[in-house]
Design a protein around this nucleic acid. Structure first.
Lengths: 229, 229
DNA sequence: TGAACATTTCGATCATGATCGAAGCGTTAC
DNA sequence: GTAACGCTTCGATCATGATCGAAATGTTCA
């Protein structure tokens, strides 16, 4: 019985090292990072990181981009991000009573980006608020924006028309691994995150994937979205 | 920066062994299998398989059920299946020119179940047919059944009302790793697979996840669904 | 109780791959 | 051209875990 099991094992092997897992996790915000930065994140020397990065890039999990003497690495495709998302969801659930639940950095839990949309308490709060106001229906396997939701986002200046070539869907649930709750992903989720960055409601922290909610952001999320945060 | 990277690596490590990957892949049809059967699939001795199974069960990727002297193993939750689905999708894409594309068993490619819905050529053909007949809209991140689609499935005797407790969505895309195309998953996908099994359009093969399309099935999929298969 | 069978546990062996020091390569800036 | 810097390649070492034979456990059935 030929199956993809060997390829599955090989792929998993690439993620099975703590250093490489840290690197992939760090790149989950969709941005590119230098090899040095990723070595720091992985907690290994540059040589070792280089070896890890080469393996990930060879298997096309990462894309590399040379800018001067530096090399920037990023996730190769959104498909890779989506796969990691699914793995993190399972990774965050560990029912072994002996094991303490993974201690997640407070900033990370509070607010972060998940590839292109909001996650953490903020992501879940915004999603919940939109559901409460009947802007959104969302469940485990799918979601849709209501007419009122479209109007709401339209009023915020979000253009929901898909780029001509994109067949990407508007709403998609993403299981938040730190909150164990659903948050909004898909084109709508990405648009909200873009808007928040653009209006300085959130700011990316220099390192890590977590984002800082600005004072203006707190007001905006509470007053405009009705988020309980 | 505390993150789930260590848990992610540990989880990946569990899948990173060819034997365990074979076992997980085998269980992707959602059914339970005995330890002996899984040892065969993994190509290892029963002792070794037992060791693998214990690790997978300890981490709650598998559930074990004792029936007499046998132990039946199955995937612990649909979440695990969904994670594996995402990994297989990436595993099936290997752009390294040196590597030959994974040779997938012809039966497996033709028709199989993916946890609870149809996959392979059959799954894609049925999905395509439903899209052609405007029964279904489906893209990378979501999907919906049209009014005509609901009527179509209703006429086939499929009850699309969700069980009271279930918030499971009707339509979800699932990227078929052997066909590199989308097929239908979610409650609707599962209902179609159930119907096909019930009406003997497909039969599960004793081993492996592939299914056999019966003569009646070929007629049904072609005439009722309009599938090009 | 004892025989048959499925599965697990134990113990020893062996292979894979993660690691870092040292050295090499490429790009940029002066 | 040459120095500085980021990154990679090479080589040697070391730890982890996959494997199976042998033996133990547990379940069913007579």
């Amino acid at each position: 019985m030929q199956s993809i099991a060997p390829e599955l094992a090989e792929l998993a092997g690439l993620i099975a090292d703590p250093g490489r897992a840290s690197i992939l996790s760090r790149l989950m915000d969709g941005r590119a990072q230098t090899a040095s930065e990723l070595a720091l994140v992985a907690g290994v020397t540059p040589q070792t990181a280089s070896w890890h990065l080469a393996r990930l890039a060879e298997r096309a999990l990462l894309k590399v981009e040379r800018r001067g003497p530096r090399r920037f690495y990023r996730l190769a495709t959104p498909l890779v991000a989506q796969m990691l998302e699914g793995m993190m969801t399972v990774a965050a659930i560990d029912p072994r009573p002996s094991r303490p639940p993974p201690r997640i950095d407070a900033e990370m839990r509070r607010a972060r980006t998940c590839y292109d949309h909001l996650a953490g308490e903020l992501g879940v709060a915004v999603t919940d608020a939109m559901r409460r106001h009947d802007h959104l229906n969302l469940d485990q396997e799918g979601g849709e924006l209501t007419a009122s939701g479209r109007a709401f986002l339209g009023d915020l200046g979000i253009d929901l028309h898909a780029p001509a070539r994109s067949r990407r869907v508007l709403c998609r649930p993403c299981l938040d691994w730190s909150e164990q709750r659903l948050h909004l992903a898909g084109r709508a989720g990405a648009a909200i995150a873009d808007l928040a960055l653009q209006r300085d409601w959130i700011r990316r922290r220099p390192q890590g994937r977590s984002v800082e909610i600005t004072a203006a952001g707190l007001v905006a999320f509470r007053d405009l979205f009705g988020a309980r945060i």
